[in-house]
């Protein structure tokens, strides 16, 4: 399934993500990593769960509000339900042991030149490329 190349909207979205990361550090002193924020609200919750819950509500509500005011967000899932479940389980285990994901390591960690985040980002980008190549071109779905 082809998708449209959207350099300007993607750049604008990226700038907003970077802005959110900067603001969360300036005001709350926190890394804007979804893995860390989310893990802190899964029981047993972290002591400082209140800002985490507020951040998550904002992150979920904003796209809903955007769409309700007539904005359009393209969305399509080109994989099976089984792939979502298996992929979801693997992502959950992986980000827990890897201590972060695209937002935490790939944006925030890389931005502060953390060696761990640079290593993590290179590794997960590589395994994602390999996985997509295997599932789309070798296994023949």
């Amino acid at each position: 399934m082809a998708t449209e190349f959207t350099p300007w909207m993607s750049l604008l979205g990226g700038v907003l993500i970077g802005l959110a990361a900067t603001l969360l550090m300036a005001l709350h002193g926190r890394i804007a990593g979804m893995t860390g924020i989310l893990t802190g609200v899964i029981p047993p919750v972290a002591e400082d769960s209140v800002w985490r819950i507020a951040f998550l509500i904002g992150a979920i509500a904003a796209p809903a509000v955007f769409v309700s005011f007539g904005g359009t967000i393209d969305f399509a899932v080109p994989v099976s339900t089984a792939a979502l479940v298996i992929g979801g389980l693997i992502v959950g285990v992986g980000v827990f042991f890897g201590s972060g994901c695209t937002s935490g390591h790939g944006v925030c960690g890389m931005a502060r030149v953390s060696p761990r985040s640079i290593a993590a980002t290179i590794v997960f980008m590589a395994t994602t490329f390999i996985t997509v190549f295997v599932t789309r071109h070798l296994v023949g779905t």
Binding site: V91, V95, T127
Partner: peptide, 19 residues
């Protein structure tokens, strides 16, 4: 770190979603 990140990439490639 490396093992977890490797797994994360595999899951991301299977499902298409990251956290």
């Amino acid at each position: 770190l490396v093992g977890g990140s490797s797994l994360f990439g595999i899951g991301w490639g299977i499902a298409g979603f990251c956290p």
